[in-house]
Design a protein around this nucleic acid. Structure first.
Length: 429
RNA sequence: GGAGACGUGGCUGAGUGGCUGAAAGCGGCGGUUUGCUAAAUCGUUGUACCUCAAAAGGGUACCACAGGUUCGAAUCCUGUCGUCUCCGCCA
């Protein structure tokens, strides 16, 4: 969420940012009016409260000195305030709620070095790692390969749950488990992240904190329960909210958290897209990276976090490229995002496998996550970052496709073999 | 699921209708003392919003959260959420 006085003082810059993001700026047309209205109401409400407090104090004093008649006179007078007071209170609530709604509905300001552009076509490649393998036989995709190997099953998943679900079997399930363990080991043992097993159901407050609410309600699976639970769409939600409403000591920062969790997304509005295979599922596995850090360190931490995710692809020897997303393609809460895209032979292109974002203080303000520098300094909002390290399902299919052999078998990347009990390839016999 | 207790500032913990934004202690910050450290001692120390060109100053709100009673609520009432103890059940 953007700061009220920031928006007030930088209205034109905010409008421009909304435009760059392809975001309708019309909510901002209301801003100045609403802001003025809000202040008018606050001034009048505070003033009437001040008078009431003054009179009430006087009544107390009169009562104590036994002058009950005088007290009663003033009492009668103050009673007259009640109606006006309650009108002002409700007006104030109304205006405050409208302002919060307006601000909570605005996306983050893009960082200065984010390319301006309408959509993903304006994303800029900043580096590339590895060479796509030259495959001199007919390339199959992971669905054909996996089904032939008996390690993935879409039909039965559809029978049990529906479309956009998959079942992994045997070596396929084990490969997924191996990937999770491998990723967590690298991030905890080499990159310094603290492993966490968070709740998979979260409340609405947490969802507001990481900006799934109020705008992206329909992307979530909601639990039929009066506590307002939803299934997490990403472990970013529980990990980032971990320190919500806290004031951390600056010395404790940065904090690095990682978690493996299933993630659940309704994929409302993506009906025609990626219907084949494992790319876009209602339920998928992900190892998430989250950092909470000082404002002046977030850019450097963002680079490091992105490098941490890239490291996994390098160790797995999967070719990828790193993109910086344009203003039009960036997520709601991000001020800057790097996407990692892995090479998929079947699509002859690179596809997103990780998204690493610096959210600045945008989420911290929503969840009141602050820190305090040495001594009696005022609390400040921390910066939050998140990234996939990596999406396990997409890594799984990238391995199947990139490591496919002419006979339909699939080699296991060297680093994963210890996690697979020494298995060197998956084949149908 | 049943019964009971509780929820106060960075922390511990007083406070059962007005003089309480809140005692006291710890911690933090500043001063004095000190060769340094430690100790002692004095002062200071919540957050948000409004007002103000700014600062100073002034004001309002906040004692889990949301309502209510009252001229006046941390304190009384109702609901919600959470924590603890005992019983039951369970991975």
């Amino acid at each position: 969420m953007l700061d009220l006085s920031f928006v007030r003082e930088n209205l034109d810059a905010v409008k421009k940012a909304m435009g760059d993001r392809n975001f309708p700026a019309d909510p901002l047309e209301r801003f100045a009016v609403l802001d003025a209205e809000r202040r008018t109401v606050i001034i009048e409400a505070d003033e009437i409260n001040r008078k009431r407090n003054l009179y009430s104090k006087e009544i107390g004093l009169l009562m104590q000195s036994g002058r009950r008649d005088e007290a009663a006179t003033i009492k009668a007078e103050v009673s007259g305030f009640k109606e006006r007071q309650s009108i002002l209170e409700s007006k104030r609530d109304e205006v405050d709620a409208a302002m919060t709604e307006l601000l909570a509905g605005l996306p983050n300001m893009p960082a200065d070095d984010v390319p301006v552009g309408a959509d993903e076509a304006a994303n800029v490649e900043i580096r590339r790692w590895g060479e796509p393998r030259n495959i001199d036989f007919e390339i199959k995709d992971h669905v054909d390969l996996g089904e032939a190997l008996g390690i993935i099953n879409f039909e039965r998943a559809t029978k049990i749950a529906g479309s956009r679900f998959a079942i992994l079997n045997g070596a396929g399930a084990r490969l997924s488990r191996a990937l999770v363990n491998f990723m967590l080991d690298v991030h905890t043992l080499e990159h310094g992240y603290s492993e966490t097993i968070p709740p998979l159901l979260v409340n609405r407050t947490a969802l507001f904190g990481t900006n799934q609410l109020p705008k992206f309600e329909e992307d979530l699976f909601h639990i039929k329960d009066d506590r307002g639970f939803a299934l997490i769409p990403t472990a970013e939600v529980p990990l980032t909210n971990y320190h919500a409403e806290e004031i951390l000591d600056a010395k404790e920062l940065p904090k690095y958290y990682t978690a493996y969790t299933p993630c659940f997304r309704s994929e409302a509005g993506s009906y025609g897209r990626d219907t084949r295979g494992l790319i876009r599922q209602h339920q998928f596995e992900k190892v998430e990276l989250v950092k909470i850090c000082l404002p002046e360190e977030s850019d450097a931490e963002h680079e490091k976090l992105t490098a941490n995710a890239e490291k996994i692809l390098q160790l797995l020897e999967l070719p990828f490229r790193t993109m910086i997303l344009s203003t039009g393609d960036m997520g709601f809460g991000a001020r800057k995002t790097y996407d990692l895209e892995v090479w998929l032979p079947s699509q002859n292109t690179y596809r997103e496998i990780s998204s690493c974002s610096n959210c600045g203080d945008f989420q911290a303000r929503r969840m009141n996550l602050r820190f305090r520098r040495a001594g009696g300094a005022k609390p400040e909002y921390a910066h939050t970052l998140n990234g996939s390290g990596l999406a396990v399902g997409r890594t799984w299919l990238a391995i199947i496709e990139n490591y496919q052999q002419a006979d339909g078998s699939v080699l296991i990347p060297e680093v994963l073999r210890p996690y697979m009990g020494g298995m060197a390839s998956i084949s149908s016999n």
